[in-house]
Computed example of a mutant assay.
Amino acid sequence: MLIFWKHRFAMLAVPKTGTTALENALAPMADAAIVNPPGLKHCTVGKYRKELAPFFERNGRRPLELVAVMREPVDWLGSWFRYRSRPALDGQANSTSGMTFDAFLEAYLSDPQPDFAKVGAQSRFLQGGVDHLFRYDRPNDLLSFLQNRLGPLPAFGRHNESPPGQLHVSAGMEDRLRKACAKDFKLWQDLLDKG
């Protein structure tokens, strides 16, 4: 999470939406950069408003706009699946190595979820809403916003990328996913409808 106090906005770090690359490039320009622990780096809207806003916003006297990025829900889950298939996690409870994407989605939809499928939901992260929500698949929209607020931007590299992998989803599984994750798909559709 990056705080641009002088420019009056906070950039929230929705997991698997390119936020590590943003942090690496923009941290020197930020007034505060929270990159660890993961629970604070990936602070949800609700947690920010409850625990951090009073500190950074001086008890409401200097409100900060909230900025975040959202990824298409199946693509977002696919990124988690691929990220957890990397060799560094082999043999660990959160590894998806050797698994199909459908099997991962089945586990994600189960209750309780196994460790490898505990990735949360973008709709829960963004619950309460943000002032500026950008599409992951349209990075230039976010970059234009940042450039308008901050001025010239440094070069962005790629960081924390998921390895390549097959993301085939059966029709039946996609239907189940769309029903179970209706809030995520609605949030994404609303974002698409805005253009």
Score class of each variant (00 low, 15 high):
Met1Thr: 08
Ile3Gly: 03
Ile3His: 00
Phe4Thr: 01
Phe9Thr: 03
Phe9Met: 11
Phe9Leu: 04
Val14Pro: 04
Val14Met: 15
Val14Asp: 06
Lys16Leu: 10
Lys16Thr: 07
Thr17Trp: 13
Thr17His: 08
Thr17Ser: 14
Gly18Arg: 05
Gly18Lys: 09
Thr20Ala: 14
Ala21Pro: 02
Ala21Lys: 00
Glu23Gly: 09
Asn24Trp: 06
Ala25Glu: 13
Leu26Asn: 03
Leu26Gln: 00
Leu26Asp: 01
Leu26Met: 00
Pro28Val: 08
Met29Lys: 02
Ala30Gln: 04
Ala30Arg: 02
Ala32Val: 00
Ile34Met: 12
Ile34Glu: 10
Ile34Gly: 10
Ile34Lys: 00
Asn36Phe: 12
Pro37Ala: 11
Pro37Ile: 04
Pro38Gly: 14
Lys41Met: 05
Cys43Tyr: 05
Thr44Asn: 14
Gly46Arg: 15
Lys47Cys: 09
Lys47Val: 10
Lys50Arg: 15
Glu51Cys: 12
Leu52Ala: 07
Ala53His: 06
Pro54Gly: 10
Phe55Thr: 11
Phe55Cys: 14
Asn59Leu: 12
Gly60Gln: 05
Leu64Phe: 03
Glu65Ile: 01
Glu65Cys: 02
Val67Tyr: 09
Val67Thr: 03
Met70Cys: 10
Met70Tyr: 09
Val74His: 07
Asp75Arg: 06
Leu77Phe: 13
Leu77Trp: 09
Gly78Asn: 05
Ser79Asn: 04
Phe81Asp: 07
Phe81Val: 05
Tyr83Gly: 01
Tyr83Ser: 08
Tyr83Asn: 10
Arg84Val: 01
Pro87Asp: 15
Pro87Gly: 12
Pro87Leu: 11
Ala88Phe: 09
Ala88Leu: 10
Asp90Cys: 05
Asp90Ser: 12
Asp90Arg: 12
Asp90Met: 12
Ala93His: 06
Ala93Glu: 04
Asn94Trp: 15
Ser95Met: 08
Thr96Gln: 08
Ser97Cys: 09
Met99Val: 03
Met99Gly: 03
Thr100Trp: 11
Leu105Phe: 07
Leu109His: 02
Gln113Asp: 06
Pro114Leu: 13
Phe116His: 15
Lys118Gly: 10
Gly120Trp: 06
Ala121Trp: 11
Ala121Ser: 15
Ala121Val: 00
Arg124Asn: 13
Asp131Trp: 06
Phe134Gln: 05
Arg135Val: 01
Asp137His: 07
Arg138Ser: 11
Pro139Arg: 03
Asp141Arg: 06
Ser144Cys: 09
Phe145Leu: 01
Phe145Asp: 04
Leu146Gly: 06
Leu146Cys: 05
Asn148Asp: 15
Arg149Ile: 01
Arg149Lys: 15
Leu153Ser: 06
Pro154Cys: 11
Phe156Asn: 03
Arg158Met: 14
Ser162Gly: 13
Ser162Tyr: 08
Gly165Tyr: 08
His168Thr: 07
His168Phe: 13
Val169Ile: 06
Ser170Trp: 07
Ala171Cys: 06
Arg178Phe: 11
Lys179Thr: 02
Ala182Tyr: 01
Lys183His: 15
Asp184Glu: 14
Phe185Ser: 12
Leu187Glu: 04
Leu187Arg: 02
Trp188Asp: 04
Asp190His: 13
Leu192Lys: 11
Leu192Tyr: 08
Leu192Thr: 00
Lys194Trp: 00
Lys194Tyr: 01
Lys194Arg: 13
Gly195Val: 02
